[in-house]
Design a protein around this nucleic acid. Structure first.
Lengths: 229, 229
DNA sequence: CGCTCCGTTGAAACGGTTCAACCCACGTGG
DNA sequence: CCACGTGGGTTGAACCGTTTCAACGGAGCG
């Protein structure tokens, strides 16, 4: 994941020409958050949306007992908090900076006005929303149709990238946070990881995970195989 | 859920004037599906999207072992299959008619052209996508942060509507399908339902469910209470 | 009538969580 | 420089919700 990107590469601005980008940037507000700081709370009125410039933000839900489920991790160039803008509602989840983070904040009114006069921007935004939706369908599929080992395997394969030449994964996350992203607990994650290592599917060289047997990992991810064979 | 709506009431067309609706309808194709018929398959190229005119469609994922997870139920006036249009990808899930169903199909190119020239349409579409996204956040929250009884309770409360005067719910679904929507099995659903009845939370008068104790049901839905007290 | 489909019930098995203890790396302050 | 506390990670064992498998009941329909 790039630490920094030119603004023209940002997902949200992709394909726009310089003039349009400049006109958007003109109404944007730079905001800074310390590691651990809450960017917005669930239910809080959605006055605009953010795009991460530098840093990492997690979007998540919490249960009354304090358990958390991460919905997305947002890195540089990626937007978050968009839905509240279009629904005119509160934010549907929490957002918190996982590192010191800088975002570009676009106020709701300004954004809607721009979109209303610029079809390219509108189409880009719809692409972003659609992409999110596909991500959620996969997430629900993983949570309900696959067990934890398969979810972890899927995660590693996705993190390694499709080109599939890089078998070394840097998980820029604590294992506890990874567990929350995968909808499980740190304990189970630890156990599964051990089993994967002992079966030769992967190894660990902190802070990296090395995929040792990609095809077996893929079988696991798709539910063709169990971790108890 | 209404059995039929005027086209101007459809989610997707809401707020558009008659001329615009007419121009969209002109490029739309009416399609008919028998109960059980597949509307589109996962991965199949997304050549356009549908809006249900009459009937009911389920959008779902399947596991290799044949288990299914319903993502959405789509009723009259609601669109489905939109994301493939904006991503230019295949459909991310399956769609199947649960009753005899008529849809209005809008080809991809026509839609994109219309959106490019009509900001209202674009904003409407973004509203639809955002609404879907919020639904997914709730779904993931329910699946990972709540247990099955709480999910069922949430479902009933939502189905009863917020105005909360109507305590009689018609579930237009087989219990097996409801189980699939809630991410569980018919057997567990049956057991939970029985427990809820025996605890006086609700009763059943086919094909209706009657909420008998709304506040207890709410406590359950929010995880304040367990079904074993 | 008999078939099929849906729903229900029971009992066993399973995956995952929970709780507790423990380890270790690290940073802080005496 | 060492003692100490802290937070992330790991391990073990009991527990729990849910699934699975099998059997059965009833409604609807050819």
């Amino acid at each position: 994941m790039d630490k920094e990107k030119s603004i023209a590469e940002w997902v949200f601005f992709k394909g726009l020409d310089q003039a349009k980008i400049a006109s958007l940037a003109a109404v944007a507000v730079v905001k800074k958050y310390r590691e651990g700081e809450i960017v917005f709370a669930e239910g809080q009125p959605g006055l605009g949306f953010h795009t991460v410039a530098q840093g990492l933000v997690k979007v998540f839900k919490t249960s009354p007992e304090g358990k958390e489920q991460i919905l997305h991790l947002i890195g540089p160039g990626e937007p978050f908090g968009e839905v509240a803008v279009f629904l005119g509602s509160g934010y549907p989840a929490w957002a918190q900076a996982m590192e010191d983070t800088t975002t570009l904040f676009l106020p709701r009114a300004a954004l809607k006005a721009r979109i209303a006069e610029d079809p390219d921007l509108a189409l880009g935004m719809m692409g972003v929303l659609s992409f999110r939706l596909v991500g959620f369908t996969r997430m629900v599929e993983n949570l309900t149709l696959k067990e934890a080992p398969a979810r972890l395997a899927s995660y590693f394969l996705e993190a390694a990238g499709d080109p599939a030449r890089k078998n070394r994964i840097e998980l820029g996350l604590s294992k506890g946070q990874l567990a929350s992203l995968l909808g499980t607990t740190p304990e189970t994650l630890s156990r599964i990881l051990n089993k994967m290592k002992s079966k030769g599917l992967l190894s660990e060289q902190r802070p990296y995970i090395i995929i040792e047997d990609r095809s077996k990992l893929e079988d696991l991810a798709q539910g063709f195989t169990r971790l108890n064979d």
